[in-house]
Design a protein around this nucleic acid. Structure first.
Lengths: 153, 153
DNA sequence: GAAGATTGATTACTCAATCTTG
DNA sequence: CAAGATTGAGTAATCAATCTTC
C-alpha cells in the first residue's frame, strides 16, 4: 500500500537547513550592502558585468547572459536597462539573428567593475574563504554542484 | 612594506564560489516558486510562520522574530502586515514593555502552515537532501555555521 | 507557432524618517 | 538619548502580456 505521509527532515538535516538559510541570507545581504555602498551596484549587477568582462569582445547575447547568471529574462532586461542608464553597458541588435540583442560592456563599465572588484573579493574572502581550508573549499564546490545539477537537469 | 594588492581568489575558490552563487539563486527561486504556487506564500513568509509555530503560545516579539529569521525590522513589519491581512497572524501590544509588539500565529495561520509544510519539505528533500549522504549533511552544517558565525560576530 | 527580448502593472524590498516608550 | 516598531517614498522584483523575427 502507498505511503503518502511526508518524509520530514531529520534533526540533523533540519539544523543544517536552518543554518544554511540563515547563512545565505546574511551573506547575500552583506555582499549586496558592501557593493552598494562602495561601488553603487548590486551583487546581481556585479555578476552581469563580470560575465561580460570575460566574454569575447566583452559582449554576450541577452539570453545567454541570463542563463549564465541564472536571472530570468525579464529581470535581466530591467537590470541591463539600469546598467545602460549608468553608461556601463550598451545594447545593439544582433545582425545574424535579428530577434537577438547583444549586450556589451563599455569602457566605463569595465572601469566600474575594476574599481568594484577588490572590495568585493576582499569581502568574499573575509566572509567565506578565510574561514575555510582546502577541504572546505572542496566541500563547498561539491555541495553546490550537487544542488545546481539537480535544478538544471 | 605594506602590500595593498587585493588577494584574489584561487581557481578552485572561484569555481566553488560561482557554483555556490548559482546554486543558491536557483534553489531559493525554486523554493519560492513552489511555495507561492502551492501555498500562496513566500519562503520568508514560511519561515516566519514556522518560527511562530514553534514558540510558546505561538507568539514572539517582533524584534526577536526579526533576529530569528534574519530579516530587517522594516522588512518584517511589511511582511507581517501582509500576513495579518491574510488572517494568518495577529499583533498585540506587549503589556510589560509598551514599546514592544507581540506577533501571534492564528489558527488559520497554523492551518496554512500545516497545509504548506509537506510540499515545501518535499521540495527541500528533492532539491537538496536526497542528493546528500550523512557526510554531506555534516559538511553543509559546518560550512553554514562557519559563515553564519563570521557574520553575526 | 516558438524563440528572443522587452514592457507595464503589480507586488515586494530598502532606506531614511518618524513615533512612542523606557 | 536609546530601543522597539512602523511608515512612506523610492527602487527593484515578479508575472503576464506583447512584439518581432525565425
Amino acid at each position: 500500500m502507498a505511503d503518502d505521509r511526508p518524509r520530514w527532515l531529520s534533526g540533523d538535516e533540519q539544523a543544517a537547513w536552518r543554518a544554511f538559510l540563515d547563512a545565505v541570507r546574511l551573506l547575500i545581504d552583506s555582499l549586496d550592502a558592501q557593493l552598494q555602498a562602495d561601488a553603487g551596484m548590486s551583487l546581481a549587477d556585479y555578476e552581469v558585468l563580470a560575465q561580460l568582462s570575460e566574454s569575447p569582445g566583452r559582449e554576450r547575447r541577452m539570453s545567454g547572459l541570463a542563463d549564465s547568471v541564472f536571472l530570468s529574462r525579464s529581470r535581466l532586461s530591467h537590470a541591463v536597462a539600469r546598467l545602460e542608464g549608468a553608461g556601463w553597458v550598451e545594447r545593439r541588435k544582433c545582425p545574424s539573428d535579428r530577434r537577438g540583442t547583444y549586450c556589451r560592456l563599455t569602457d566605463a563599465g569595465f572601469a566600474a567593475l575594476e574599481a568594484a572588484a577588490p572590495g568585493h573579493v576582499e569581502a568574499v574572502r573575509r566572509y567565506v574563504f578565510d574561514a575555510f581550508g582546502c577541504d572546505e573549499v572542496t566541500h563547498l564546490a561539491r555541495l553546490s554542484e550537487a544542488i545546481r545539477s539537480r535544478l538544471t537537469s
